[in-house]
Simulated assay, not measured.
Amino acid sequence: MRILVVGAGAVGGYFGGRLAAAGRDVTFLVRPGRAAELQSAGLVIKSGRGDLTLRDVKTVQAEAITEPFDLILLSCKAYSLDDAIASFAPAVGPNTTILPLLNGMGHIDVLAEKFGAARVLGGLCVIAATLNREREIVHLNDAASLTLGELEGGLSERVQAITEQLTVPGFHVSASDATLLRMWEKWVFLATLAASTCLFRASVGDILGAPDGRRVIEAMLGECRAVAQHNGFTMGPDFDARANQMLFTPSPLTASMLRDVENHARTEADHVLGDLLQRGGPAQQRDAGLSLLRLAYNHLKAYELREARSA
């Protein structure tokens, strides 16, 4: 199976690097600057699951793609989706499968409209990773997993074959017969974490230490869950257990969106929070009052305006 990994940043580089190290046929679609870095220093992963340096990494640039790939692993930021689609479109053939690992749900609609729903899987990843100053991929904790499945549910032969190809050391992969629900669960959790930590500019532990911090996180989680419920997705006991452990246990946990704000970088506010508001039904419409979720979203939009003015 020929696999094209779009980008070699923290997420694509980690999963693609592990696949390549295990002998899978992996090519990274990168810009010239990143290609030069990989040629010079290799693809370097620093991780508690094992450090890795890959030499002779296979790379390609968009204009050099001459034939389709079997699987496209897409892990760009949501705001870069249009540019990513333009770059990997020449790699999409009649039998190509696209596995996106983006946050939220809006990208599914965009990819299905562009390439046809039959070519698009549902997918999500759980990992905390970043690029350091040396452009090495730094895995920040032990979590590293991929989940994939058909958008309409069920376990197809295609999903089982891809899952087998993706099963390598360094991360856990699983096929799900309810991938859309898993994606909504991640979205609800991520939106709660991002909205809370960005609004307070603080970690979960610091928020919980504030007089009303726990109440704010509880209310934010309730609002996000209500949006999922409005769209037909109900979070179950397993989600409750995971969310309670992550959101209500004092820890240094923050959302990557807060790190973006602290680094004066672009955020996925529109895709993680704004799109959730758009799908929220009457409870989240503009005339329904200023909810905590809407307050957090506007907080981030004001940040964007300030950054644009400074630039």
Rank of each mutant, 00 (worst) to 15 (best):
A10Y: 06
G12Y: 05
L19G: 05
L19I: 00
A20I: 07
D25V: 05
R34C: 07
S40L: 14
A41N: 14
G42E: 08
V44D: 04
L52T: 11
T53S: 14
V57R: 09
V60D: 11
I65T: 07
D70K: 00
C76P: 13
D82P: 03
A86M: 01
A112I: 03
L121I: 02
G123M: 01
I127Y: 06
T130C: 02
D142F: 08
D142W: 11
A144C: 01
A161T: 08
V168K: 04
D177A: 14
D177C: 07
T179A: 05
T179E: 09
V188C: 07
T192G: 07
L193S: 02
T197H: 10
A202C: 05
D206P: 04
L208K: 04
L208E: 08
P211W: 00
D212R: 14
R225N: 13
A228P: 01
A228R: 06
N231G: 08
G232A: 10
F239C: 00
D240R: 08
D240G: 02
A241S: 11
R242E: 14
F248H: 10
P252N: 07
P252C: 03
A255S: 15
A255G: 12
L258A: 02
E262V: 03
H264F: 05
H264D: 15
E268G: 06
A269D: 13
H271P: 03
L273Y: 05
L273C: 01
D275K: 13
L277W: 03
R279W: 13
G280R: 12
A283D: 15
R294K: 12
A302S: 13
A302V: 12
A308P: 02
